[in-house]
Design a protein around this nucleic acid. Structure first.
Lengths: 362, 362
DNA sequence: CGCGTTGACAGTCACGTTTCTGCATGATCA
DNA sequence: TGATCATGCAGAAACGTGACTGTCAACGCG
């Protein structure tokens, strides 16, 4: 069978193949491939001619064929832990959104795209998409998906220090212990005598590290721990837990909340009990949301710098994919930032208006 | 050259191909493919045997090869409008996060995965990933990316009524005019005499439709329009615009804010001017955030139901991809929901505590 | 003038699947 | 008993690209 006029079968109009370009330009397939990829040794005239013809035909190389041939898809998985059947957790919205945004930007700048893939998704979906590597957010102890990916030889970079002996390629995280200790010291400096904690019942690393840091701090300064834990994925449970914490007989005079909505929930609970913030109750919570800049009063927040983390994670991963032995460390610690506002400043009642914050740039 | 023992070349250990499975099971490649995909006519014994051998070898079919052969990648693009160089807009965080979450779930349930692809990304990234279709969020007037995709014959479904003559396959949107009119009537019922609007300077459909609906309502009831517009992607500009709106000589006694942060910004501005909410100022804003349930006072919000929209968009798109002539309409209007809280209820001062809201389920 | 070298391309294979076609074998039926 | 048919499987052709190998002419050099 002759191979001439191959364009008659297969491809519908609108999808020109490399053969069509070769025929139209009067050269061979090899020449087209080399001309478009800048590979071979061709005179610039041929190169320009081929490019021009390709543009005229609206030629787009088939991503599938290229992936099959080269073994690289240009796709990076973005895996998010799930509570329940939803792709990502409710309480991490702002964090996740910012982190994903930065990760997408960073990946894109290096020619990669991100695929959202919940860890609990059906196995066939995972194997149906060709990934060059994966970003895992807060992997659980012995995540089967991570093990499977690593077994396949794919680089896996984790946002959050991996628990147990999870064999990730690299990880990026904050120093959560240091952050909690810093906040507790900050509150103590502001005059707090008994600091309470609003924490979660889940077993992820963030919750675990933060809680143990709190307990160790209490032990060190000789304070009885005062904390309430609730399932962080339930938005209503947070309000209830905040209320419980302030209803205790040993009511704290300062509270740190580990999750984003804790600030508003604690403010509401304080109002119910007639507690003034910051006079009667000092408040800090971990959040990326800007609403805390304009609450009454503005609430001091701890930012985990999700944008820096997202960027770092992607860069480390792509370095691993491309086999670059970069100077980026395999274990990166991103500093947190405490944004001090009125709710944690008992000592300086003069200024109650928080300075305007410019749009974050990192 | 003999084709026996093909496994000696190519594939590194850890990646078993279909040939290896066929050899190990003592059957042909065809039989393996049919057995795993449930296609041919095979006795159950053979089917089970092949599956068992495949599992033992840890066989995973190559997504790239499958895509090349079948023409279906199982990937759906999720395109988000960009202001500046970031993948998605700052002001739509909660909306986008919820919408993306629902879309990811819905796609996953039907065996598809989502790829985040900003509209402004480099062309090579778009053509480097094999997509079966694309979801476009709030496409601009003559989006070149959408045209290109449609020209390639890919289904494109839009979140938001497409402006101009954008040739999308289908779209899903709220009835923004009806929503605005409903809110204005709601505020008027609560006793508002002069209703102001906090709107955006961008030209997207949402902003445009909402603003014109407001202007028409004003004309109908004979009220002079009182509004301030600001670039919605700038978080600081919103606070300034809220302040300006309440500083006007013709200060409104009720305000509707089109964007998520408007509620807290307006509350803060009201405090600065000594205005009580809802006694001196009625407040509604469009937001998906739960923080407005526990602000002081709780703020009435309009929910655009992003989860329903995300689900609907994905289902319509996948129907189009798979050529199903479903009974789902090509143009779907999702109803909005007005969550009435204290900030817009001047008439009933008895109950100032909003009822607890259960986690949304739709 | 003969020979190695280099430029400029063409031919062909392989990536790993899916699927169409087709060949045996045994069962069924006129 | 020969023709028909369903069954169970094997062979091989694509899918569209990238890369290796090979060919042919021109050219420089001793």
């Amino acid at each position: 069978m002759s191979r001439a006029e191959t364009s008659r079968r297969g491809s519908r109009p609108g999808r020109a193949g490399i053969r069509d370009v070769a025929a139209a330009a009067g050269v061979s397939i090899t020449t087209v491939s080399d001309a478009l990829n800048g590979k071979g040794r061709l005179p610039d005239a041929t190169r320009r001619h081929v490019r021009e013809v390709a543009d005229r035909l609206g030629y787009r190389p088939s991503a599938a064929a290229r992936t099959l041939r080269t073994g690289k898809s240009g796709l990076i998985g973005l895996t998010v832990t799930t509570y329940g059947d939803e792709p990502f957790t409710f309480t991490e919205f702002a964090y996740f959104a910012e982190m994903a945004r930065a990760a997408t930007s960073a990946a894109l700048a290096r020619g990669y795209a991100l695929v959202i893939l919940p860890a609990t998704s059906r196995h066939d979906v995972w194997s149906n998409v060709a990934l060059d590597g994966t970003v895992v957010i807060d992997p659980s102890d012995h995540d089967p998906v991570v093990s499977e990916l690593v077994r396949q030889g794919l680089p896996v970079v984790s946002d959050g220090r991996p628990a147990g002996s999870l064999p990730v390629t690299a990880w990026v995280d904050n120093d959560h212990e240091a952050a909690v200790l810093g906040i507790l010291d900050h509150l103590a400096d502001a005059g707090a005598r008994r600091i309470g904690l609003l924490t979660g019942t889940t077993t992820d690393t963030y919750t675990h590290l933060s809680t143990t840091a709190y307990l160790r701090w209490c032990e060190r300064v000789g304070q009885d721990p005062v904390y309430e834990a609730y399932p962080a994925h339930d938005p209503c449970a947070g309000a209830v837990a905040a209320d419980r914490l302030l209803a205790r007989p040993d009511r704290p005079d300062a509270v740190y909340g580990l999750f984003d909505p804790n600030g508003t929930d604690l403010l509401a609970a304080a109002r119910r009990y007639g507690l003034r913030v910051p006079e009667d109750l000092l408040l800090v919570c971990c959040s990326e949301s800007t609403v805390y800049a304009s609450t009454e009063p503005p609430v001091t927040t701890l930012s985990l710098k999700p944008r820096r983390i997202g960027t770092a994670v992607v860069h480390v991963l792509i370095d691993a994919i491309e086999g670059l032995h970069s100077d980026r460390p395999v274990e990166q610690v991103i500093p947190t930032e405490l944004i001090v506002r009125t709710s944690s400043q008992r000592r300086s009642p003069r200024t109650t208006v928080s300075p305007p914050r410019s749009p974050e740039s990192d």
